[in-house]
């Protein structure tokens, strides 16, 4: 029981509940299907990115380049489709974006797994390299007239309805991608040996090496996978926003993404982290970002709240680890 209470998941779920109650008290229309749909919609891109970052953290690394990578993938893909294959349907375009993302992720993977460089510094570097390359050599012009395939996708709604008060609500099919990514990642992490190897490396890299796990290969694949997810998140973001912007503000979502993952209980030391926790973390971040405005708290406080959430998400397990260590020693 105490272990359940001490978990980040429980804490985050509690905070979400409290938040909803405050929201409901402040605004009777808060607990409604349209609000839920808004939140789900806002969580799509953040969620996919967070799942990717979770995998990196489980393997014992950190990645601060995913949003930069996502923007490169979305822009390159849109540009390519617009100029070369304007008739391309969205499935192929999505695949293309994922491949671009995977290739960029492979660069991170080569530097980190291949050359053994520290993950923070490499991804800090590639964060700039990706962005700088895009804006210097690919283009800095905003594409507001998306190719037809991507426009079609953005119009495809999974749920559509009218509320009692006559307001419309809808949830785009893009949400299915988040569900798909979560299911796929769950399968990879918990049902394949590769996924178990990711956990094993995060738990003890030396033990992994001794038992014969190809540590470098697994690390490399982790970054390729994260890259592919980043590419996917990027193109979904572009099609939902109906614009491909090489200077997209998605770039600033890196820290909220990281906050969501550490809130969910993943640790920088590696080896721990769950998809449930990450999704709860994403929910909380989305809830906070969307509701602060609704609750009349100025937008400017968002980054303060997210900063606190990062500290809370990291501080809780760190504090518990200290206590446990002191008890055992």
């Amino acid at each position: 029981m105490s272990s359940l209470l001490g978990r980040n998941e429980t804490l985050v779920a509690g905070v979400i509940l409290a938040f909803c109650m405050v929201g409901a008290l402040a605004d009777p229309g808060f607990l409604s299907i349209p609000t839920l749909m808004d939140l789900l919609r806002a969580g799509i891109v953040l969620g996919i990115l967070a799942v990717g970052v979770l995998v990196v953290l489980v393997s014992g690394g950190i990645d601060v380049s995913t949003t930069s990578l996502a923007i490169v993938a979305l822009y390159v893909t849109t540009l390519f489709v617009q100029n070369v294959t304007p008739e391309m349907g969205w499935p192929l375009a999505f695949l293309l974006a994922a491949v671009v993302g995977a290739l960029l992720g492979a660069i991170n993977g080569l530097l980190i797994a291949g050359l053994g460089l520290p993950t923070l510094i490499v991804t800090l570097g590639t964060l700039s390299v990706f962005r700088g390359f895009l804006l210097t050599f690919v283009g800095s012009r905003l594409i507001s007239n998306l190719p037809g395939g991507l426009r079609d996708f953005s119009r495809a709604m999974m749920i559509r309805g009218t509320n009692a008060d006559g307001s419309f609500y809808s949830l785009p099919w893009a949400f299915a991608f988040l569900v798909g990514v979560v299911v796929l990642t769950w399968f990879l992490l918990y049902r394949t040996m590769l996924g178990r190897q990711v956990f094993a490396i995060g738990g003890s890299m030396e033990s992994a090496r001794r038992i014969g796990i190809p540590v470098r290969r697994v690390q490399f694949l982790v970054f390729v996978y994260v890259g592919a997810l980043g590419g996917l998140a990027g193109i979904i973001h572009a099609s939902l926003a109906r614009v491909a912007n090489p200077q997209d503000l998605l770039l600033n979502q890196q820290l909220p993404v990281l906050a969501a993952v550490v809130l969910g209980g993943a640790r920088l030391e590696g080896g721990t982290g769950t998809l449930t926790g990450t999704l709860l973390g994403v929910s909380l971040i989305v809830l906070v970002s969307n509701s602060l405005i609704a609750l009349g708290i100025p937008n400017t406080f968002q980054s303060i709240v997210i900063g606190f959430l990062i500290l809370l998400g990291t501080g809780l397990p760190a504090w518990q680890a200290r206590r446990a260590q002191r008890r055992a020693a």
Binding site: Y190, R191, T192, M193, L194, G195, R196, Q197, F199, A200, G202, G203, S204, E206, S207, A208, R210, I211, G212, I213, G271, T272
Partner: peptide, 29 residues
């Protein structure tokens, strides 16, 4: 080894079977 080289974050069952599964080239859990 003296430090046992186990995975502290994984279960007893997984720790015991990890090497065997790896050697068999199992792809899935």
């Amino acid at each position: 080894f003296q430090d046992f080289s186990l995975f502290p974050n994984l279960s007893v069952a997984e720790n015991i079977a990890f090497g065997a599964e790896l050697a068999e080239g199992a792809r899935f859990v």
